[in-house]
Measured scan of single mutants.
Amino acid sequence: HNLTITQGKLFFHYNPKLCLSEIHKMEEVSGTKGRQERNDIALKTNGDQASCENELLKFSYIRTSFDKILLRWEPYWPPDFRDLLGFMLFYKEAPYQNVTEFDGQDACGSNSWTVVDIDPPLRSNDPKSQNHPGWLMRGLKPWTQYAIFVKTLVTFSDERRTYGAKSDIIYVQTDATNPSVPLDPISVSNSSSQIILKWKPPSDPNGNITHYLVFWERQAEDSELFELDYCLKGLKLPSRTWSPPFESEDSQKHNQSEYEDSAGECCSCPKTDSQILKELEESSFRKTFEDYLHNVVFVPRKTSSGTGAEDPRPSRKRRSLGDVGNVTVAVPTVAAFPNTSSTSVPTSPEEHRPFEKVVNKESLVISGLRHFTGYRIELQACNQDTPEERCSVAAYVSARTMPEAKADDIVGPVTHEIFENNVVHLMWQEPKEPNGLIVLYEVSYRRYGDEELHLCVSRKHFALERGCRLRGLSPGNYSVRIRATSLAGNGSWTEPTYFYVTDYLDVPSNIA
């Protein structure tokens, strides 16, 4: 807008934040220059609390790290170098490059900038070799853009010569660093050979998330399962459950009422301010606690030095998902009996873990797994792929695949051998790939016309006998059925096997 004052003059007093240069501009645009008398524009009460600059400061050096910015700028000295009290560095987070010096300023003089007072450097006698002032900004957020400017702080001049310097606002972004852990990993099994893994992005990506790394490792069953005799009275049979499938998407929606109208769909109840505040506090606490764990609990591995020492970490090797089922080394339970199943799973520490690289999504279907087997899954978020990966501390989750139908069934015939004193040795093959492992066998036998009897055969007993022995049988026709019990439950009964026990007292003698 054009402003013209045809008559009258300007009068400025007691404006401590208004620089004289701005008042002189007002004289020019209003056409009143030359009308004012000496005392109409006070030299001592206008701009006496402001830094009124008329020179431009330029930054000469900028260096960044993930949490620091090192700045240096060209030296500046007023005509009387004693008038320079120091520099004021202003900075704040700036997602967009549209910041002005006066953003967030209120009537009390406060604003949204963080201000650092910096002492002037030592003055050199040689004007050509003056030290460049600077400042190291610490405690910054990774991968965050900051708006920065600097200006001088000078003393009051009796001659009211307006001098000083100020830089333009520059924008500097800190470097990326390792992201925080992925949030809320959930693993479920939808079949006997697959596990579905879902997660949420890290709360602090500290860069642009480029991919996720998912490692999985087959877990050995508890050692007590191999040692305890679950045929003993009072000892509860062990059981394991597989990871249940995901709930429906509708039930997972946030901010939804727990109660549904019987007449149909209901609208979600909005969260109160107290609920939102509580969630923010919980989120802040979780982030602080995660940072504490990362800094205190997890110790970084030592990389190899120039002395030739090897990095103890196993090298990563990509495998196809079809090879995942046989990740671990199978060892027989008892070496003397080769027909026992290889369900003991000690994992070799030198073995390469299978892994998958996930790009542009937060889910993965891990296939080719062994049925009813526990897996430990390790999830890392990465925001750099080359020249070397920059990934987060791992988040861990466990899951067990679903049982395989008929995996616990005894394959092959049940054979028998009759000894003296009416002892019958029953023999059968253990299931080759049971659900988890076989903890015991149930032997059901009966003599024709009598009630059915049951015998429990422990895992250890089966390994020693290759089956079991029935003792003290009365003469007669017998039928026997056997079924295995694994961590997933009972298998199917075998087809009945028949044998006849004679009275050993009636056996004919070869003595003449």
Results as ranks from 00 to 15, higher is better:
S398L: 10
P403W: 06
R376T: 10
S268A: 00
S243R: 15
N326V: 02
L470P: 02
E247M: 09
F355C: 06
E430S: 11
R318D: 11
K233S: 14
F298I: 02
A309H: 14
G489R: 07
G308C: 11
C269D: 03
V214A: 05
S392A: 03
N422Y: 11
W216M: 12
A381T: 08
I366S: 01
S342D: 05
Y292K: 02
T241M: 06
N208H: 10
G207H: 02
S262I: 13
P244D: 11
P238S: 04
N360W: 13
S268K: 12
L237Y: 06
N435W: 03
P431N: 06
T307Q: 09
F215P: 02
S274C: 15
T303A: 06
T333L: 12
K287V: 05
A336C: 14
V424P: 03
A395I: 05
Y498N: 06
Q252L: 12
S239P: 14
I377V: 06
S305M: 10
G436W: 07
T303F: 06
F226Y: 08
S458K: 04
W242A: 14
P431V: 05
N360A: 10
S367I: 09
V324D: 03
R286G: 02
Y292Q: 01
Y504S: 10
P332V: 07
D250N: 14
S458N: 08
S305I: 11
L321Q: 14
A407P: 03
D409I: 10
F372Y: 05
N383H: 08
T415A: 13
T347V: 04
L293V: 04
E417N: 05
T288E: 10
C269Y: 05
S283W: 06
G476W: 01
T340N: 11
G489C: 08
L213H: 06
K302A: 06
T343A: 13
A405S: 09
R446W: 05
G374N: 11
S341K: 13
L228W: 05
K278S: 05
P245T: 10
V414N: 03
P338N: 07
P338A: 09
I410G: 02
G234A: 07
V327D: 11
Y259L: 08
L225H: 07
L225Y: 05
S392D: 02
V359S: 08
T401L: 05
P387Y: 12
T347S: 12
S486C: 04
V214G: 13
Q219N: 11
R481Q: 01
N208F: 06
P354R: 11
T343R: 10
P332G: 08
D409A: 05
G207R: 10
S492N: 04
S257Q: 08
P244A: 14
E433L: 13
E281D: 04
S223Q: 10
T241Q: 13
R400Y: 04
V358P: 09
P403F: 03
V423A: 09
Y448V: 12
Y212S: 07
F285K: 10
E452Y: 14
K278N: 05
T415F: 07
A405P: 02
Y478K: 01
N255M: 03
L440M: 08
K357L: 15
E452F: 13
S344N: 07
S492F: 11
L364S: 09
S283R: 15
R481N: 05
E465S: 13
Y448A: 14
Q275P: 03
E249Q: 12
R459Q: 10
Y375L: 15
V331W: 14
S363Y: 12
H371M: 03
F499N: 01
N255F: 03
F226D: 09
H461L: 10
A335K: 10
N339V: 11
R390G: 14
P434W: 00
S268Y: 04
R370M: 12
L277R: 11
H371K: 06
S444G: 15
C468S: 04
E282C: 14
S239N: 13
C456W: 00
L379W: 02
A399E: 07
S203W: 07
P244K: 15
V411S: 11
E310N: 13
K357W: 03
Y504A: 12
R466S: 09
A407M: 12
L440V: 15
S320T: 11
E452Q: 14
V501I: 04
Y230F: 12
T502L: 10
F499W: 06
D506R: 12
Q252A: 13
D503M: 06
E279I: 05
S341P: 09
S342F: 13
E356P: 07
K233I: 01
C266A: 09
A220Q: 15
P300G: 05
E279S: 04
D222M: 09
I410N: 06
L321D: 11
F298R: 05
G489T: 12
Y498W: 10
L321V: 10
K278G: 14
A399R: 15
F499V: 14
V214L: 09
V297I: 06
V214F: 01
V457Q: 06
A394F: 09
T210Q: 07
D385M: 09
E356T: 14
G374V: 08
Y500I: 12
S223V: 12
E279P: 06
L213S: 13
N255W: 14
I276E: 02
Q219P: 15
Q256V: 12
K406M: 10
T340V: 07
E378T: 09
T340Y: 11
P434S: 07
Y504D: 10
E221K: 15
Y478I: 01
V331N: 09
K432R: 12
D408V: 02
T288R: 05
S398D: 02
E279H: 06
R318H: 09
E351K: 12
G325E: 08
T401S: 06
Y230N: 05
G436Y: 08
A394I: 15
T401Q: 01
G491Q: 12
A407C: 01
F462D: 02
S363A: 12
F372L: 12
A463T: 12
E452H: 15
A335W: 06
D503R: 13
V334S: 10
P349V: 03
R318Q: 15
A463S: 09
N421V: 08
E265M: 12
S283A: 14
S257H: 05
S243Y: 12
N206Y: 01
P270L: 04
R353Y: 14
Y478P: 02
E217K: 15
S363H: 08
A484M: 09
N477L: 11
S320M: 11
P338D: 08
G472I: 11
G306R: 12
C267P: 07
R466Q: 06
F246C: 14
G489P: 03
P434F: 05
D250E: 13
E351D: 13
K357M: 15
L437C: 12
L237P: 05
F355K: 11
R286I: 04
Y441H: 03
S341I: 12
N435P: 01
D323N: 11
L369F: 06
E362G: 07
S268C: 07
L437V: 09
K361H: 09
R447F: 03
E247P: 12
Q219K: 14
A263S: 13
C468D: 02
N339D: 10
Y504K: 14
F215N: 03
E388Q: 12
Y396S: 04
D204M: 00
G264L: 11
G489F: 04
G476D: 01
L235N: 08
P270M: 06
E260I: 03
Q256M: 10
L440W: 00
E350G: 09
S367R: 09
R319A: 11
M402W: 08
L321R: 12
N383I: 05
R376Q: 03
L280I: 12
N339K: 10
K432F: 08
H294V: 02
P244V: 14
L470D: 00
C456F: 03
Y292W: 06
G368M: 09
E290C: 02
S223G: 06
F215A: 13
H371E: 08
S444M: 07
R481Y: 09
S257V: 04
L235D: 03
N206D: 02
T340P: 12
S367E: 06
